[in-house]
């Protein structure tokens, strides 16, 4: 049976969810700091270095020190920069990740055998919505790069643009082929429908295409042609310094965490583990969320590890990979998903 809710609260419920959900913003910022720390430690391990180890135990306070530094740095804007674009780009970058965060379930609790996903809001089209909000980042990046009136930044912006447009299409098609299996565009329903069999086993090709496209979408190495420290001097953020850079940097890491959530929810079964039934009241409260977070950290570590294992592609290779390889592969996966759907649910 479900929990009883007093009658008068029901119209207020979305407002309460929204305001309480704002605490998630704080959580995700701490998570992003954790991800930065993890990346620095992991990359140090891969390269046989120490990584941060002076500030605090295991260098855990390094990020706090960095934050203090960013807060006390002068806010510089080149004289010939476009003020409007340059100043407001962070709103787009932060807005993109915040609005993604609203629709992503960060876990679930089972109370008396009834499942309650821990999402700030649930909508019928949340997968489409999340994808749309994720694509908003490109506006922020383009505003910074075009606004700062720097040639390196301009090159970075155009590269970013060419990359993003190529990878949105395979990303969209793989999401469609996942949504077919559950017959819903609600990410909670998609996650729920993978109770017994995860989508990664049903559509390994789709998972591969989705993961590669997501890496490109997030601008992670080997797909960070917009940054290219060696050739473009950090590309789109050449002129972005101090806390403005900090905000963009944080947005990028939050985007990475939310991307890992997407992989876990769409392909790795979300909070489901085959054979696990939440009949124990305490376990039902903790275990599903813990399962999801373990999967997310696993995906995160794969993403970080890939950064230090694969060199950056050239821009023409990137564009070729998306249009000539991933796009046909995603269509192939769509056909496979349709066939599988017809086979698994005959006469539906």
């Amino acid at each position: 049976m479900a929990i009883e809710i007093p009658e008068f609260i029901i119209p207020l419920l979305p407002w309460i969810r929204g305001v309480v959900g704002l605490s998630l913003v704080g959580v995700i910022f701490v998570g992003a700091m954790g991800a930065v720390w993890l990346e620095r430690k992991l990359s140090a391990d891969i390269q046989s270095r120490m990584g941060p180890c002076r500030v605090g135990k295991y260098g855990l306070l390094q990020l706090v020190a960095d934050a203090i530094k960013l807060f006390t740095k002068e806010d510089l804007r080149p004289l010939n920069a476009d003020r409007l674009l340059f100043n407001n780009a962070t709103i787009f970058m932060m807005g993109s990740v915040f609005l993604m965060l609203v629709a992503i379930p960060v876990g679930a609790v089972f109370i008396n055998g009834v499942e309650y996903p821990l999402a700030v809001t649930q909508m019928d089209i949340s997968v489409l919505y999340i994808e749309a909000m994720s694509a908003l980042t490109i506006f922020g990046i383009f505003m910074v790069a075009y606004g700062s009136n720097n040639k390196y930044s301009l090159l970075g912006a155009f590269r970013n643009f060419a990359r993003m447009v190529g990878y949105e299409v395979p990303l969209g098609i793989t999401v469609v082929s996942v949504a077919i299996m559950s017959g819903s565009l609600n990410i909670v329903d998609i996650s729920r429908s993978q109770g017994m069999l995860w989508n990664i086993f049903l559509q390994p090709l789709g998972c591969f295409v989705f993961f590669v496209s997501l890496m490109a979408d997030m601008g992670r190495l080997p797909f960070d042609q917009n940054e290219s420290e060696e050739e473009l001097i950090a590309g789109w953020i050449t002129e972005y310094c101090g806390m403005r850079f900090g905000l963009g940097f944080f947005a990028e890491y939050i985007h990475m965490i939310l991307g890992s959530f997407l992989v876990a929810l769409l392909f790795l079964g979300g909070w489901n583990v085959p054979g696990f039934v939440a009949n124990n009241p305490v376990l039902g409260l903790i275990a599903p969320t813990a399962f999801l977070l373990i999967k997310v950290v696993f995906v995160l570590m794969v993403i970080i590890g890939l950064r230090w294992a694969v060199p950056r592609f050239r821009i023409d290779q990137v564009v070729d990979l998306s249009w000539k390889k991933l796009f046909p592969l995603s269509l192939l996966n769509l056909v496979w998903a349709v066939g599988l759907g017809l086979y698994l649910y005959p006469g539906a």
Partner: peptide, 8 residues
């Protein structure tokens, strides 16, 4: 379901 979106 879009009220939290507006808040965010």
């Amino acid at each position: 379901s879009y009220i939290p979106v507006a808040i965010f």
